[in-house]
Design a protein around this nucleic acid. Structure first.
Lengths: 122, 122
DNA sequence: CTCCTTAATAGTAATGATTACTAATAATAG
DNA sequence: CTATTATTAGTAATCATTACTATTAAGGAG
């Protein structure tokens, strides 16, 4: 495995974003630094980074999004505006290893976000 | 909204399956009853049924799978054999409505299932 | 530092799950 | 039974993602 500037850039973009970027968005952002970086390179590196557990893939909508793993957190998906909201609150879950060796879990909430609730009232 | 035999059949197949079928698999199964039911019809009805909260869409892999909602349960995805396992154990989660109106949540576990663990030992 | 091996890249073509489109069909209200 | 129109079958189109290939560059050996 080689450390390339493309790989570093992509990891940097994911780690420094407050949003949950799609591959397309990450590509657009990375073009600002490397003028001819290709979309395929972005996808390949994102997959590699996910496999190395350096970032996470989020599957809510039609296309995948990517998220940093600095701080363990969960997500809420607003079914109205399709925004993904970070939930940093600690939620304990206890589960024995009855089903095999559980390595990870994620809790995906769905509902209407505060912004949309506000708009509904207006 | 009209009740068609295609719609009923598709809902039936999802509700009576122990597996988590893909649209393609549901189409294949439905062809046994309606010899010329089209894949588009299957997709359209699955989407309708999800919107009406009669079934659920599961997003783990490259393609979506569908699941019944009779009994509230969660899933574990085996990262080795890509099997989806039902977890019927009740898991309590308390969360205030700080983030908006939470309508639903799902807990997605990832790990190695018992079958794969067994194979590893051999 | 220079050369060499080969993994990674850019650019583009292909894939495949899902959606869109359209003429024909069938559900249901009157 | 008839008319209206939502739904369907069949097929074409879309689009996120992956595959392919000649070229480039990371980084180890000398």
């Amino acid at each position: 495995m080689r450390v390339t500037k493309q790989r570093n850039l992509i990891l940097d973009i994911v780690n420094n974003s407050k949003n949950h970027l799609s591959a397309e968005e990450i590509h657009k952002e990375s073009l600002k630094s490397i003028k001819n970086i290709s979309l395929g390179t972005v996808y390949r590196n994102l997959n590699n980074l996910v496999n190395e557990n350096l970032i996470k893939k989020i599957k809510f909508e039609e296309f995948d999004r990517y998220d940093q793993i600095n701080i363990k957190h969960n997500h809420m998906f607003c079914t109205k505006c399709h925004k993904i909201i970070d939930i940093f609150e600690d939620i304990e879950i206890s589960l024995n290893d009855k089903f095999g060796k559980v390595n990870d879990y994620e809790i995906n909430f769905k509902g209407i976000c505060n912004d949309c609730l506000k708009k509904e009232k207006e």
